[in-house]
């Protein structure tokens, strides 16, 4: 999976590449060789430019405008109105924004941490299991990984259902004294898990961790397989404990893998939408909005306020870019230096 060919030929030499290999035939089309990569890039660039970069610029512009239905409809369109920073002062004044921001951040931290911890633990476990058992477990976690986000939300909504949900049934199974000791109550019948913001997020975290730990586990397993067995052998001879071995050998060697997994998890968890949408049943309980949901509700619930929606989306993007900037810089550096 390393791509040495790219690296050895990579940047540092900005001259058009075709020149480097004299005698390479320029064929058929009659186009100069140097133009070929650009031609190949045209469709991709067009798509990325038109569907990602330019829209992002539009978001940044709209965040300072008032954009409602009269400004976007195809017939008899009105020009958008500049409102300066009104959209921002309006959302910052609203408590929905602050609870959405808090929900987004707390959820991301908890979900990412838990996913990584559970995933790594399972990855290490898989590496230790026998062949048959590990295949069984891999197939099992594959199922959890494959379930579409909407279906994930549906499944866990059903498991946590107040009346016929299996979670309340299982909690009722606990001996009363234990349940009372731990939770301060014995009867769980009809417990509405999807009502309060905090319990919605608890269910959401379980859902997201359940669905995303398999990827971490399998990636960690792949990484572990690449570590020479001698290293562990040596550690064992030295009498190192399992934890020490993990800390001194496994973790440092897998550091790049963890870096990637962390960033991917952050990107995925920061803007979780589908599962939350299903668990809440649309943007209903405003205390449980995250930034994605808040932006959606502002922009698409009547009357549509695309400007404030864009302002919230911009805040979300900036946070995400700042959080992932470190990673991007590192990748860019590698790209430039090698």
């Amino acid at each position: 999976m390393t791509d040495t060919s790219t690296r050895t030929r990579g940047g540092g030499n900005p001259s058009p590449s075709g020149r480097r290999r004299p005698g390479r035939p320029a064929k058929a089309s009659g186009l100069p060789v140097w133009s070929i990569p650009y031609l190949l890039l045209i469709p991709g660039l067009l798509v990325i430019g038109a569907l990602l970069l330019y829209p992002m610029v539009q978001v940044a512009i709209m965040a300072f405008q008032k954009v409602g239905l009269p400004q976007i409809r195809p017939v008899n369109k009105r020009p958008p109105e500049w409102v300066g920073t009104d959209n921002f002062s309006q959302i910052f004044d609203n408590e929905i924004f602050w609870s959405a921001l808090r929900n987004t951040l707390v959820f991301a931290v908890l979900a990412v941490t838990l996913t990584l911890v559970v995933g790594t633990a399972v990855g290490v476990l898989l590496n230790k299991l026998g062949k048959k058992m590990s295949t069984l477990v891999i197939v099992g976690i594959m199922f959890a990984w494959a379930v579409p986000p909407v279906a994930q939300g549906i499944i866990w909504k059903w498991l946590f259902d107040a009346e016929a949900g299996i979670i309340n049934w299982a909690l009722n199974l606990l001996p009363d004294w234990l349940s009372t000791l731990v939770f301060g109550r014995a009867d769980w019948t009809g417990e509405p898990w999807l009502n309060d913001a905090w319990s919605i997020y608890m269910v959401l975290i379980i859902t997201v961790v359940w669905a995303s730990f398999p990827f971490i586990a399998v990636s960690v397993l792949a990484g572990l397989k690449g570590i020479p067995a001698e290293l562990y052998e040596a550690a064992r001879v030295d009498g190192a404990s399992a934890w020490r071995t993990f800390r001194k050998i496994t973790f440092p060697l897998l550091r790049p893998v963890f870096a990637v997994l962390t960033v991917l998890s952050i990107i995925w968890d920061f803007k979780v939408f589908s599962q939350l949408y299903v668990l809440m049943g649309g943007p209903t309980n405003r205390e449980a909005f995250n930034l994605s949901m808040y932006s959606y509700a502002e922009a698409f619930r009547s009357p549509p306020k695309m400007g404030s929606g864009a302002a919230i989306a911009l805040v979300l993007t900036v946070i995400l870019l700042v959080v992932t900037a470190v990673y991007v810089r590192q990748l860019v550096k590698q790209e430039d230096m090698t």
Partner: peptide, 12 residues
């Protein structure tokens, strides 16, 4: 109803 009206008014 509101979502549908919104979509209709926006999309013509």
């Amino acid at each position: 109803v509101n979502d549908k009206f919104t979509a209709a008014a926006a999309g013509g």
